[in-house]
Amino acid sequence: MRVFRLHVNGDPVEVAAPEHWTLLEVLRYQLGLTGSKQGCDKGDCGACTVLVDGTPTLSCLSLAATVEDQQITTIEGLLPAHRAAGGEGADPLQESFDESGALQCGFCQPGMILSAKALLAENPDPSAAEIKESLAGNLCRCTGYTQIYEAVLAAAKADMHAAISTDSAKEVQS
């Protein structure tokens, strides 16, 4: 056992766990953040994807000890962050996944949504092909992916819309 000092969803946390535990194990079984899923435990499925300093990362292949100095975002962190930024409801991606029917069994979606989050942060106006490419590390067995693309496109559009209205609001104010 050892104590890990992690930064999860903006909170500094100290947690004791076996030294060889992965980030996924620590998140799920010590911190109770069970939104990150385990589908294969070998880096194939992407259901365990979290953001480490904003980069989509397979938490089942990352030892908890290796990410102590970095900012970890799990699916549970999106809604509070959105609220903290003055938003309503859930994160726009979470809302658009729900509105587009992209959530069937939902097991792959936390990882999928975080991969999409990273994509939109880097590329706010992605093409369908770019979305496809960026989600290739997240396996979904229910949807055939189509409604997932629709969800990401809708969220991108909503984000752009929000950005444009903020900009125009600023223009009006100035």
């Binding site: 939104g35 385990q38 999106l78 859930a90 979470q94 959530l103 939902g106 979606q109 949504i113």
Partner: peptide, 20 residues
């Protein structure tokens, strides 16, 4: 919308292995 969509999108939904 589905009745459980947002709970799945936010990680709130509980699957069997989430039970401790």
């Amino acid at each position: 919308r589905k009745v459980d969509g947002l709970s799945k999108a936010t990680g709130e939904a509980i699957y069997t292995d989430d039970i401790q």
